[in-house]
Design a protein around this nucleic acid. Structure first.
Length: 418
RNA sequence: GCGGCCGUGGUGAAGUUGGUUAACACACUGGAUUGUGGCUCCAGCAUUCGUGGGUUCGAGUCCCAUCGGUCGCCCCA
């Protein structure tokens, strides 16, 4: 028995939960349409190098991917959306055929081999956007606004936007050196992870939870002091655009994000609810100046973010968002006695007329058929007995009513249409 | 990858220091009511406690392993 169950960290989405998924997907599709984004779908697995980039120091790329070999080729189940989209953008030279900025979105399952927790599965669904080709502070603001728009539409109110800038290459490189100089004499005070970060990605030291409260952290050089004019101006324009859009935010200069490819704007939107625990981040993203080149495309900058849908749905529920119910019957057709296929025939007829129709097609007690009608939340109930079949008439009643009327087929359809 | 807690029927769950027949509620099915439901009443719901071993005269209750969930750490593209 135990062998026939979902693998660890995966789960089934059952029919009873489908309403909320459909609603969220609908919100995503209608919102992206408003912002004029187009959907792109890439393979569930890619050649491993697409995700395992050179010089990428992050742990995740090394440890948390589903990678497998077939023949002498290594494949990886996609752990995130951006790499595949940029790969596709370059492979098909979309920079030549699409209007810039290219505005793409995806809504697909992702795979990460992590220890499962609430809001963190091994197969999960992500929605993300990539806005590629034009570098503009207003585009950064619009991208954040798009994400917030969707979160709001799902009734999630308690959120906080954290934003920061990593500056351009020059600023970042100056800062990186300053950090290394600063931490060099203090290395023995830092945790083991930070030693590794010191070599590979010093910015991440600031993120360290272990060493977070130490004095050397508080006195560490600030990125904001190393930004060149251009980077500063860019960031200020992003912030003023957000102000203009009345999107509240908090500048957090410790926010550096896990990936190495980010430049300039990085952001993270998190839930401020207590219950969200360790899985508070709703969506996160940032600008990348070099990813397109990395995948063989021209020198184009892009910005994007990704949202985990499972987490978003969980938060919507915590905020008591009321999901629309689908799947109600307009009509439930009950058959009584030897009525043959007449219930089926009239059900088909009503379906042709555009109604959602449930019909009882096996001999059951009247009582149980009424129960089914209730469960289907049918608006109308049609009852057909042997006499009615003879006379070619139908008993029609509104669910909940005691009275019923006997009508012909034509009258039945006309009544229902009203 | 590390640590804590947990795993009883479709669901929510009770199960005393291990002791004959595993509460209760909801849901479901059938009947009272062989052509009209939503109330009420009655009955049923498959030797079984995630799985596999062990200890014991005897285990849902103890031990080990394993699978899964959950919380925290790590990490979070």
């Amino acid at each position: 028995m135990a062998q026939y169950q979902t693998p660890r960290g995966t789960y089934d989405i059952l029919p009873e939960e489908m309403d909320k998924w459909h609603e969220l997907e609908e919100v995503i599709r209608s919102t992206t349409k408003k912002y004029r984004y187009q959907e792109i779908r890439t393979p569930v697995f890619e050649l491993t190098p697409v995700f395992k980039r050179e010089n990428d120091s992050s742990d995740m790329v090394n440890k948390e991917m589903y990678t497998f070999e077939l023949g002498d080729t290594s494949y990886t189940l996609r752990p995130e959306g951006t790499a595949g989209v940029i790969r596709s953008f370059c492979q098909h030279k979309l920079y030549g055929s699409m209007e810039m900025p290219a505005k793409l979105y995806y809504l697909e399952p992702m795979f990460r081999h992590e220890r499962p927790q609430k809001g963190r599965q091994r197969q999960f669904t992500q929605f993300g956007v990539e806005n590629i080709g034009i570098k503009s502070p207003e585009i950064d603001a619009e991208t954040i606004a798009l994400g917030i728009d969707i979160v709001k539409k799902m009734g999630i109110s308690s959120v906080k936007v954290l934003i920061n800038t990593l500056g351009d290459d020059e600023s970042r490189s100056n800062y990186r050196n300053a950090l290394k100089d600063y931490f060099k004499p203090h290395l023995d005070e830092l945790c083991a992870d930070c030693h590794r970060r010191y070599e590979q990605n010093p910015l991440r030291i600031l993120d360290c939870k272990v060493d977070h409260d130490k004095d050397i952290m508080k006195d560490a050089p600030r990125l904001s002091d190393y930004l060149n004019e251009e980077s500063k101006n860019y960031f200020n324009r992003v912030l003023s655009a957000l102000d203009h859009l009345e999107i509240p935010y908090e500048v957090d200069d410790r926010l550096v994000r896990g990936l190495d490819y980010y430049t300039h704007t990085v952001f993270e939107v998190e839930s401020t609810r207590e219950e969200s625990g360790a899985q508070a981040t709703i969506f996160a993203g940032g600008r990348y100046d070099h990813l397109v080149e990395y995948f063989g495309g021209p020198e184009l900058s892009g910005i994007g973010f990704a949202i985990g849908l499972e987490r978003l749905l969980a938060l919507a529920e915590e905020d008591h968002h009321e999901f629309k119910k689908e799947l109600k019957s307009d009509v439930y057709v009950i058959g009584l006695g030897e009525v043959g296929s007449e219930p089926l025939r009239i059900a088909m007829k009503l379906r042709e007329e555009g109604f959602n129709v449930d019909v009882n097609l096996s001999p059951r007690s009247l009582k149980s058929q009424f129960k089914s009608a209730e469960r289907a939340e049918a608006t109308y109930i049609v009852i057909i007995g042997e006499e009615e079949v003879q006379k070619k008439v139908y008993n029609l009643k509104k669910a909940g009513d005691k009275e019923q009327v006997t009508v012909t087929e034509e009258e039945l359809i006309n009544t229902l249409k009203k």
